[in-house]
Amino acid sequence: MVRFNSRWLALEGHEFPAFQARIERDRVVRYLDFLGQQDAEVRQESACDDIGPALPTFPFSLEMEAGVVAAVAALLEIEASRLLHAEQSFTYHRPLRCGDLVTVMSWLRDVTWKPERRVCFFVKESHFRVDGRLTVSSRSVYAIRTAGEDT
C-alpha cells in the first residue's frame, strides 16, 4: 500500500500541460454504438449534432486518450492502478460538435488529506475550449487509500 506523501498537499493548483484533440465523426459514432444509444441509421445522420446531451462523458474520453490519468499518477509518483476515480461531473456551456478542435486545460483544484481514514483526495478541474470559448467544464475526484503518513 502507498504511504501518504505530505508533498501531495503542495500540488494544489498544479497545471497540467494543455493539449488539443479534434472531435471526429467516426469517434462519436463508435461511442454512441458502444453506449447503445441509437440505431445505426439515426447514429450516422445525427452523430455530429450537439453531442453533449448524448455523450455526457465524451470529454473525459479525450482526456483518457491524452494520458491525463497517467499524468496525475506520475505527478504523485505512484502507479496509476493506485488511483480510484471516485467522482465526476460535467457542465456543458455550449454545444460540442464533430470537427471541433478542442483545447483542454486541467489543474488540481484541491488536495485534501483525511488522516483518520488514511485517504487523500485530489480534485482535478478541466476546461474544454473551442475557438477560445469555454464549451465544457468537468470536475474529477481521485482518491488514494494509504498505509499512513510519510515519515
Rank of each mutant, 00 (worst) to 15 (best):
M1R: 09
M1A: 12
V2K: 11
R3Y: 10
R3H: 12
F4N: 00
F4G: 00
F4E: 04
N5S: 06
S6W: 04
S6C: 01
W8I: 02
W8S: 02
L9C: 04
A10R: 12
A10N: 11
L11C: 09
E12G: 08
E12M: 01
E15W: 12
F16P: 02
P17M: 07
P17T: 06
A21G: 10
R22H: 06
R25V: 09
D26V: 06
R27E: 15
V28C: 07
V28A: 03
V29I: 14
R30E: 14
D33C: 04
F34Y: 12
L35Q: 12
Q37M: 13
D39I: 07
R43C: 09
S46Y: 12
D49R: 13
D49H: 10
I51T: 05
I51K: 02
P56A: 05
P56C: 01
F58G: 04
F58D: 06
P59K: 06
P59A: 08
L62S: 11
L62M: 14
E63R: 13
M64G: 15
E65I: 13
A66Q: 14
A66E: 13
G67R: 04
G67V: 07
V68F: 11
A70E: 13
A70R: 12
V72I: 07
V72S: 01
A73C: 01
A73I: 02
A74C: 07
A74R: 13
L75P: 00
I78W: 06
I78N: 01
I78D: 03
S81R: 15
S81M: 13
R82K: 14
R82T: 13
L83Y: 02
E87V: 06
S89E: 14
S89R: 14
T91V: 15
Y92D: 09
Y92G: 07
H93N: 04
P95W: 03
L96K: 10
G99D: 04
L101H: 08
L101S: 10
L101W: 09
V102N: 02
V102Q: 07
V104R: 00
W107Q: 12
L108F: 08
L108E: 03
L108Q: 04
R109C: 06
D110H: 14
V111D: 02
T112Y: 14
W113Y: 04
W113Q: 03
W113D: 03
W113M: 01
E116L: 13
R117E: 09
R117V: 09
R118L: 00
V119K: 00
F121E: 11
F121Q: 09
K124Y: 00
E125Y: 05
E125Q: 14
S126K: 00
H127C: 08
H127M: 05
H127K: 11
F128M: 05
R129I: 04
D131E: 14
G132P: 03
R133S: 06
R133E: 11
R133L: 10
L134N: 03
T135V: 05
V136Q: 05
S137R: 06
S137D: 09
R139H: 13
R139G: 10
R139N: 09
S140Y: 07
S140D: 06
V141A: 12
Y142K: 09
Y142W: 15
I144V: 15
I144N: 05
R145Y: 04
R145A: 09
G148K: 01
E149Y: 02
D150R: 05
T151P: 15
